[in-house]
């Protein structure tokens, strides 16, 4: 098991396609992470907001972020699957 993992790492380093796949994967993860941080920040802001207009705006933004994250997570899942199915 350990050897297989090491072999995969080596393949990642050597293959251009694998490199690109990896870059896609890590970029998507980064974007999702920043969206999650933004979500947490906005939820805190919503809890503090008193003005109804502001609240609505924050809620709407949160909904957008949820939809974007949902889409992103689905893509991440597909990328993971792709990586698993085509190890080389």
């Amino acid at each position: 098991m350990k050897a297989k993992k090491l072999l995969n790492k080596l393949k990642d380093i050597l293959s251009d396609e694998r490199q690109a796949q990896l870059a896609r994967y890590s970029s998507l993860k980064k974007v999702l992470k920043s969206l999650r941080n933004e979500k947490i920040r906005l939820e805190m802001k919503l809890a503090e907001a008193r003005n109804e207009e502001d609240r609505q705006e924050i809620a709407s933004r949160l909904e957008i972020i949820s939809a974007q994250r949902k889409k992103g997570l689905q893509l991440l899942k597909e990328l993971k699957k792709e990586r698993k199915n085509n190890p080389d």
Binding site: L32, K71, G72
Partner: peptide, 8 residues
């Protein structure tokens, strides 16, 4: 590209 794929 990742952002584009997430955008609605």
């Amino acid at each position: 590209a990742a952002m584009r794929s997430v955008a609605l």
